[in-house]
Simulated scan of single mutants.
Amino acid sequence: MTPSSAKSGQSRKAKHCSELLGTGPSIDELVPALSLLGERLARILPGYLSPFAGGEPPLVRIGMPMDCNLASIAADIETLASHTLMAVGPKGLPMLAIFEAPSVLRLVDRTFGGRGDVPDEIPDSFPLSAELLLARIEQALAEALTMTFGGEEDHKVRPMRRDTSLRYLNPFDRREDLLQLSLEVEEPGVEPWSFSLAFPQQTLAAVSTAPRHPVRRDARQGAPDPAAEPYGSMPVPVTAVLVDMTIGFSRLSSLKPGDVLPVAIARSVPLQVDGRTIATGTIGEVEDRVAVQIQQAF
């Protein structure tokens, strides 16, 4: 063996030796990690999708992680689709979100008061209404993924750019091994819609080491911030108690249309949630509508 051939052999050995290169876990080793992340995302995501579901958190189901690459993703899509490149953390580790046209158009139809019908003929490009809706969904998904990955700045997810062509988007090498996770969103009385996420090995390895829950920076920190998700978007019925009066049963039983009950509205009107007073205020008017000006909150 000549010196050059020996050197070449050593190079080939180093090239294929993951221990020397430190390439991290393989795709097969990352499948359980993605399954765990998917289960966590299925619990967190409904709160972020509730604005697109009439205010009620939908049910999110996850599929089994599938190995793929960009070429196989493109081959599996039979119609128009929107692909969003997302970046994770300060290093901008890439991941991909795929939204096929039927799901997007179904959501657009519901946004404008329809039943979620899909046109018989899928258009060649997304209308502006669909583009605007996609931007909102991308942001909600990015925030949900950030919480899924641990909620820390090192795992913050940001939508970067979007395109209907994977070739023009060029998120990563077409031959790079990926893991893809499909998610289906179900709501009562309407057809479900779906999308999928694709992760390169390096990205998935980084986010799968994130803590299960956000680490508190201050040990004295109390209850979760009610303005933060998933609590911030939850609808809470609030009751303004204008009149609280006592009336005899005999008088109550004799009430008939046209009767007048003299009442006095208190100067301090309580605002209640589930029977508990959370604030008080005074009655006023804003643009010809009755309003309550908060004077004290508890």
Score class of each variant (00 low, 15 high):
Met1Arg: 04
Thr2Leu: 06
Ser4Gly: 02
Ser5Gln: 15
Ser5Lys: 11
Ala6Met: 03
Lys7Gln: 04
Ser11Trp: 02
Ala14His: 03
Lys15Trp: 06
His16Met: 09
Leu20Tyr: 01
Gly22Pro: 08
Gly22Glu: 13
Gly24Val: 08
Pro25Gly: 01
Leu30Phe: 07
Val31Ala: 07
Pro32Val: 06
Leu36Tyr: 09
Leu37Arg: 04
Gly38Asn: 03
Glu39Lys: 11
Leu41Ser: 08
Ala42Phe: 04
Ile44Gln: 00
Tyr48Ala: 03
Leu49Met: 04
Phe52Gly: 01
Glu56Gln: 11
Pro57Ser: 05
Pro57His: 02
Pro57Asn: 02
Pro58His: 05
Gly63Thr: 00
Met66Val: 02
Asn69Gly: 10
Asn69Leu: 08
Ser72Pro: 00
Ser72His: 03
Ile73Gln: 00
Ile73His: 03
Ile77Met: 06
Glu78Gln: 10
Thr79Gly: 05
Thr79Ile: 07
Thr79Phe: 09
Leu80Gln: 04
Met86Lys: 04
Met86Leu: 11
Val88Phe: 02
Lys91Met: 14
Gly92Thr: 07
Met95Trp: 07
Ala101Trp: 07
Ser103Met: 06
Val104Glu: 00
Leu105Phe: 08
Leu107Gln: 12
Leu107His: 08
Phe112Thr: 11
Gly113Pro: 03
Arg115Val: 11
Ile122Lys: 05
Pro123Asn: 12
Asp124Met: 04
Ser125Cys: 10
Phe126Pro: 01
Pro127Asp: 01
Leu128Ile: 13
Leu128Met: 07
Leu134Trp: 02
Ala140Ile: 08
Leu141Gln: 08
Ala142Met: 02
Ala144Asn: 03
Ala144Lys: 01
Thr146Asn: 09
Gly150Gln: 05
Gly151Ser: 07
Glu152Ile: 15
His155Asn: 05
Lys156Met: 09
Lys156Ser: 05
Val157Met: 07
Met160Arg: 09
Arg162Leu: 06
Asp163Glu: 09
Thr164Arg: 08
Leu166Thr: 12
Arg167Tyr: 13
Arg167Met: 08
Phe172Arg: 03
Asp173Ile: 14
Arg175Gln: 14
Glu176Gly: 13
Asp177Gly: 15
Gln180Trp: 04
Gln180Val: 08
Leu181Glu: 05
Ser182His: 10
Leu183Pro: 07
Glu186Ile: 00
Glu191Lys: 08
Trp193Gly: 01
Trp193Asp: 01
Phe199Lys: 01
Ala205Pro: 03
Ala206Gln: 12
Ala206Arg: 11
Ala210Ile: 07
Arg212Gln: 14
Arg217Lys: 15
Gly222Ile: 00
Ala223Phe: 07
Ala223Glu: 09
Pro224Asn: 10
Asp225Leu: 00
Ala227Leu: 12
Tyr231Leu: 11
Val238Tyr: 09
Val238Arg: 07
Val238His: 05
Leu242Gly: 04
Asp244Glu: 15
Thr246Phe: 04
Thr246Ser: 10
Ile247Glu: 11
Gly248Ile: 05
Phe249Asn: 01
Leu255Asn: 13
Lys256Ser: 15
Gly258Lys: 07
Asp259Asn: 14
Asp259Glu: 02
Pro262Lys: 04
Val263Ala: 09
Ile265Lys: 05
Arg276Tyr: 13
Arg276Leu: 10
Ile278Gly: 09
Ala279Leu: 08
Ile283Arg: 05
Ile283Phe: 01
Glu285Arg: 12
Glu285Gln: 15
Glu285Thr: 15
Glu287Arg: 13
Arg289Ala: 12
Val290His: 06
Val290Gly: 02
Ala291Thr: 11
Val292Ile: 15
Ile294Trp: 01
Gln295Cys: 05
Ala297Met: 08
